[in-house]
Write a protein that binds this DNA or RNA. Structure first.
Lengths: 208, 208
DNA sequence: ACAAGAACGGAATACTTCGTTCCACTCTTG
DNA sequence: CAAGAGTGGAACGAAGTATTCCGTTCTTGT
């Protein structure tokens, strides 16, 4: 056996199950109590506190994790040189499915931001910028969509939720599809009302 | 003076300011404490409790109110026989601006539903159905959009919020515009993934 | 002028909800 | 078989908040 029995094995398994549970629980409810995570993971509370000094620390880890997953998606999109629109749409869908993008954003304000988090966030911002530029240059994306739009769109889709997880994903894809259809270039489409959102307007939520 | 000075005048004014404050506050945060409403209204807590036996009662009143506003919008849309698409789009915009539609839905679960609420809710449902049928028959609306879709779309848009109220409205209209564009009929548009939402899937949130 | 009472502001009360700590218990391992 | 890592979950304390209570201010009928 690789490491099946033994306290060490249990610990290693717990490392993972705890993180996954935390992601699932806080994705469903950013204000969930830490005991809900323990319960979902099927472990005691102390198993959590052995790994993370505080709830804050767990949240930071989770946010960073989400950001990194998102970055990976963006990089994958940039590396893929298939049909421009397909690549972009697939990128968006992966982001929505994973919920990674919005997790960080939903958590905003519920924990104190570290320097590393800010840096990684900036990196994510720039990558997204590049994804957008690329799609725009390929002529498949409205020119007035920016990074912050994506943030807000992810957040909107995250607010769609029904009891069944699979069905929730399906519904999110449904509305993503509608959104995407309008974001696609041929801007026979009318002007959008008002200027696009600025990052600063949103970042404000991180402070007071 | 109609009723400017005097306790009675103050009371009448308070009736209104309290309700408006409650709407504003709970719209921004469905879990806001009742003291926040008092503060926003610039009155003491007892001014609230004089009018409503409990928070629950205030919430019910608010939800019913929102439902009735929504019904009024739907009826207005049905009465308007201008350009079918324009009427529909304007209806949607009014709903999003007023936030009436989603207030009730956002409050779901935070208070106990009365019989009257259920009835009014059903009435709202039927009216919406008629608005959709009408637009569909006029050939300006995708055929696979149903009442529950609207509910979910309103809810999504409600989750867009920045610090400035005016700007928030502008952004919501921005994304509503994108949504609407895709909801418009010429279904050269591709199939949407998965079946439309059923009312039952959503109503569940009202229970446990 | 004044007593009764309507309306009010806001402190005090009585919970409830969490984050965190603590301790007894169970394995593992040298 | 003793030391200690890892764990479950009860216990504790800090917040937050719905509701009640009381002293005060203003209105009004006599």
């Amino acid at each position: 056996m690789t490491a099946l029995s033994g306290r060490k094995a249990e610990a290693a398994r717990n490392d993972q199950v705890i993180l996954e549970s935390a992601r699932a629980v806080f994705m469903a409810d950013p204000n969930a109590p830490i005991s809900a995570v323990a319960e979902h993971a099927g472990v005691g509370i102390s198993a959590l506190y052995r790994r993370y000094k505080s709830k804050d620390e767990l949240l930071q880890k989770l946010a960073l994790d989400g950001l990194q997953r998102y970055i990976a998606e963006a990089e994958a999109a940039l590396a893929d040189d298939g049909d421009a629109w397909t690549v972009f749409a697939a990128f968006m869908e992966r982001c929505v499915d994973g919920g990674a993008a919005s997790l960080t954003r939903r958590l905003a304000g519920t924990f104190t931001a570290t320097e590393q988090l800010n840096q990684t966030g900036y990196q994510a911002y720039q990558l997204t910028q590049r994804v957008l530029d690329r799609s725009r240059e390929a002529g498949v994306l409205r020119s007035d969509i920016n990074v912050t739009d994506l943030s807000l769109i992810f957040e909107q889709l995250q607010s769609v939720a029904v009891h069944d997880a699979g069905r929730t994903g399906q519904l999110r894809r449904r509305y993503l599809h509608l959104m995407l259809q309008s974001m696609r270039s041929p801007a026979e489409a009318g002007e959008l009302p008002g200027p696009p959102p600025e990052w600063e307007e949103i970042r404000r939520r991180y402070d007071g």
